[in-house]
Amino acid sequence: MQVPAPFEYERATSVDQAIGLLDRLGDTARLVAGGHSLLPMMKLRLANFEYLIDINDLSDVLGYITVEPTQIRIGAMARHRELLESAELGRAFPIFADAEKVIADPVVRNRGTLGGSLCQADPSEDLSAVCTTLNASCVIRGRDGDRVVTMEEFHRGPYETAVGDAEMLTEVRFPLRPNGASAYEKVERRAGDWAVVSSGAAVWLDGDVIADARVGLAAVGPNTAGLPEISAMLTGQRPSEELYEQAGIIAARSCNPVTDMRGSEEYKRHLAKELTRRALRRSVNRINEGS
């Protein structure tokens, strides 16, 4: 029987009260959101904390998906299922539904949250790749107010983020730009498993020329990584199969996969290339279908 080491449990009544508790308790305390990464780690005693602060009662204040003219703001407590089922989000960023359909299984998706996913900072985590692809920024709240960081700044290494001991991720912001679309491609060993490799792409067109394009990969390095070299190569070009191929070659070359039970390094590089190509192709097709 897997049982976490003993701890004290408190429920957050507001964001500021939770931050106050974290401030007082320091690194002996942890927030628990959906609990679907933290509790398995505590059951295995890979993580031990003296205090758990349950933020599920903040779902009402931090569970929103708000569409504004120039951005979409999503609260840290939005659950996987809500991200999957939001029609507005799906219209603006089809990459979300693509990814959410293949994150874990529907029962896990009832609990897991956007904030927990990003803060877990698992190298294979899918939503971090989505956020990187969409150039999202993270709102981190501490005692002295909010600060906003890019995804590159947010992830400091595997299982490590910019969120301090007395801070909390409250919101993720996604800039909205016209004439764009996005897609997510993942290869997993069986339904509901973590990625062998996944690739997200987002493309914006200006007429028939690529105004900007972004690619984010998961499970091929210490953190999900954006690939600026691909963006630079694609910008100003007309979409074509040759271009997707070149982007795939850059993806395969720039990532850092390791051989493990999910596959060899070579196979993962092959996937990085192929999935990047497919995600770019699907993004462009979606723009053309929409117009």
Partner: peptide, 27 residues
């Protein structure tokens, strides 16, 4: 399984299926 994978422990919490091996009773 005790690892959130098999689903035999699923119960409904506020009408939604949840794996009860991955939720604290306190929650």
């Amino acid at each position: 399984c005790d690892t959130s994978n098999c689903g035999t422990c699923v119960v409904l919490v506020d009408d939604e299926p949840v794996k009860s091996c991955t939720m604290l009773a306190a929650m």
